[in-house]
Computed example of a mutant assay.
Amino acid sequence: MKTLKFKLYQHKRNRFLKRSINAAGVIYNHCIALHKRYYRMWSKHLNCAKLQAHIAKLRKRKEFWQSVGSQAVQDICQRIEKAYQLFFKHNKKGVRPPGFKKVKKYKSFTLKQAGYKFLGSNRIKIGQKVYQFWKSREIEGKVKTLTIKRTPLLRIVYGSRR
């Protein structure tokens, strides 16, 4: 897999992406809280599929959470599951379970297949909005994932297969 990084043009429209990253941070913290609560109540690990189903139900009622795509929410749940599996595997070595993050420090979310579309030249549609980016080189192969990262200048990271 080859990864390409592009910067977004500065525009006031970018605040919607920043809000989406904030919403992803809120969802992440909610998932961590559910894991901790579930373990406290049942002394068992929360299944990733159960968590995804629960979050999907909550997204219907919480409008703020709908700014993050469904596959991005599933990716958040899978990343938490991966961190817990690492914790279970290497518990003796001092690996800690995943914890809460400040929403302002939450860095990125990943769109796997849906939620974005290339419109030609240097334009991309993410959700309902169109953004422009510095296309410093051509995109080779088929794009598999798209990650929106919060940096001083917003970045788009493509994971493409050659």
Rank of each mutant, 00 (worst) to 15 (best):
Q10V: 08
Q10K: 15
Q10N: 13
K12V: 13
R15W: 14
F16M: 01
K18Y: 07
S20D: 00
Y28M: 10
H30Q: 07
H30R: 15
C31P: 00
A33P: 00
L34P: 01
Y39D: 02
R40N: 10
R40I: 02
M41E: 14
W42F: 04
W42L: 07
S43L: 07
K44A: 08
H45N: 15
N47C: 06
C48D: 06
K50C: 04
Q52V: 09
Q52G: 12
A53E: 15
I55Y: 00
A56P: 03
K57A: 09
L58G: 00
L58N: 06
R59H: 01
R61D: 14
F64N: 08
Q66L: 11
S70N: 06
S70P: 08
Q71W: 01
Q71R: 13
Q78N: 12
R79K: 14
I80W: 00
I80A: 01
E81R: 06
A83V: 01
Y84F: 14
L86T: 10
L86Q: 15
L86W: 03
L86E: 11
L86A: 13
F87V: 00
K89H: 09
V95R: 13
V95P: 00
P98S: 06
P98E: 12
G99Y: 05
F100I: 13
K102R: 07
K102N: 14
V103Y: 02
V103Q: 10
K104D: 10
Y106R: 02
F109V: 03
F109A: 09
L111R: 09
L111V: 01
K112Q: 11
K112H: 13
K112G: 04
Q113L: 06
A114Q: 12
G115F: 11
K117Y: 07
K117V: 13
G120N: 01
I126F: 05
G127L: 13
G127A: 14
Q128N: 15
K129Q: 10
K129W: 08
Q132G: 08
Q132A: 09
F133S: 07
F133N: 03
W134G: 03
W134P: 02
S136G: 02
S136Q: 08
E138V: 07
I139W: 00
I139L: 02
G141M: 10
K144Q: 12
T145D: 00
L146C: 08
L146D: 06
T147A: 09
T147R: 11
T147K: 12
R150Q: 14
L153C: 09
L153Q: 03
L154V: 03
L154T: 07
L154M: 12
L154G: 05
I156E: 04
V157E: 11
G159Y: 04
S160K: 15
S160V: 15
